[in-house]
Amino acid sequence: MSASAPPAGRGPTILVVDDTPESLRFLTATLESAGMTVLIAIDGLAALDLLDHITPDLILMDGVMPGLDGFETTRRIKADGRFRHLPVIFMTGLTETEHVVQGLDAGGVDYVHKPIVVDELLARVSVHLANARIAQGSQLALDTAGRPSFALDDDGAIEWLTPLASAVIERNFAGWKPRDGSLPDALATIVSRLRGVDVPPGAQATLEIGGCAIECTMLRRTSARQWLFRLAERREGDAERLLAERHGLTSREAQVLVWISRGKQNREISEILEISPRTVNKHLEQIFEKMGVENRASATAIAVGTLSQ
């Protein structure tokens, strides 16, 4: 089951995970008085179950709870690609440095101590809500621009993926879900090659799956040690249709241009398309005229640019 967004038209939705009734009452009253909607889970398993139904804007997580504690609960939440962006603020009476580090290592973005100071808590919640909106907005912008994208950490685990990227992967890899936390094996293999030390930004690798080609482009490695990638889904005939539509070519001319853009020579194209080399030359003359170019190199550059958009 996929998690849904919080109801529109309300303030931010906060999930509070705490096993202490007094803390739950205090936090609920505090957050609701600040215009927020509060969801409650009394243990880690209840929190995970709730996340299958709705995605809050932020989680306040008690670190120490019986059964599944807040640290392990957070690790499981962050292992699910749907919730990589979800800020988790730990709250606990523990003050030892090792527990602060444990909370941050589990995926928390901040840490507040009990007894909680209301103004401090609300200020921290406000800051992390704003940061999360910026991060999520950036991912949505990538999708809006038609750029299914995702990020991996140095170990190959998914840091985040945009909804379009998730849809491309789910469509082509049966049984894969964002909550898996890692890419399907076949896709992970080509992505691993793109994370090599000598691989430049813009490098591409393609995975053939039936009649579809999944093209992955390595964008860059960020200062936050994230590897950013873009996906493109190419189905048989897509390239020809795009070139024909964009440049006013016939279907056969578009086929010739596709193979030219892939570095094939006239003799090879004639064999692939089962036409004579002379016919290939005639198609090239028409392609040059329609595209307003003088030579093969110019036509190739334009075709590659068109297909990369």
Rank of each mutant, 00 (worst) to 15 (best):
F71G: 02
V112G: 09
I134M: 08
L45T: 12
T189F: 08
A203K: 07
T144G: 08
A239E: 15
G305W: 03
K264Y: 10
S261P: 08
S261L: 08
H247W: 11
F173A: 01
L183N: 07
D57R: 09
C216R: 00
V197S: 15
A232N: 02
P115T: 13
A5G: 05
G210V: 09
R234S: 12
R195K: 09
L273Q: 15
F71A: 08
E98K: 14
P56D: 05
N266E: 13
A5S: 10
F26M: 12
T300V: 10
V117D: 14
Q136L: 15
L121M: 15
Q265T: 02
S276W: 02
L142N: 01
D185I: 06
P66A: 10
E236R: 09
V304E: 15
D80N: 03
F229H: 04
T74K: 00
L27M: 14
D49W: 06
R278F: 05
A8D: 12
L140C: 01
M291R: 14
T55M: 11
V280Y: 00
T13V: 12
T189S: 13
D198F: 11
R230M: 01
Q139M: 12
L231V: 01
N172S: 12
D119R: 13
G9C: 08
V168S: 02
W176C: 05
T97C: 01
G103E: 10
T95N: 15
R220H: 04
R76C: 04
S4I: 07
M36E: 11
D110K: 05
A254M: 02
P21R: 07
V100M: 06
M36W: 07
D119G: 09
G263A: 07
K282G: 05
H128Q: 07
P7V: 03
A151K: 04
L129C: 05
S166V: 02
G81N: 01
S270A: 13
V293G: 07
R234I: 15
R234F: 11
H283K: 04
L94K: 08
D43E: 15
E98N: 14
A232D: 01
I158Q: 06
L45H: 12
E271Y: 05
W227M: 06
A130W: 09
S261N: 07
A167L: 04
A232Y: 00
N266P: 14
R82G: 00
I134E: 07
D185M: 10
V100A: 05
P277F: 09
L207A: 09
V191R: 08
I59D: 04
Y111Q: 14
V101D: 09
R234T: 10
S298A: 15
A174V: 11
A106S: 14
D185C: 03
E170C: 08
L228P: 01
N172F: 08
L94I: 04
S138N: 11
Q136M: 14
T250Q: 03
P178D: 07
E208K: 09
K78R: 13
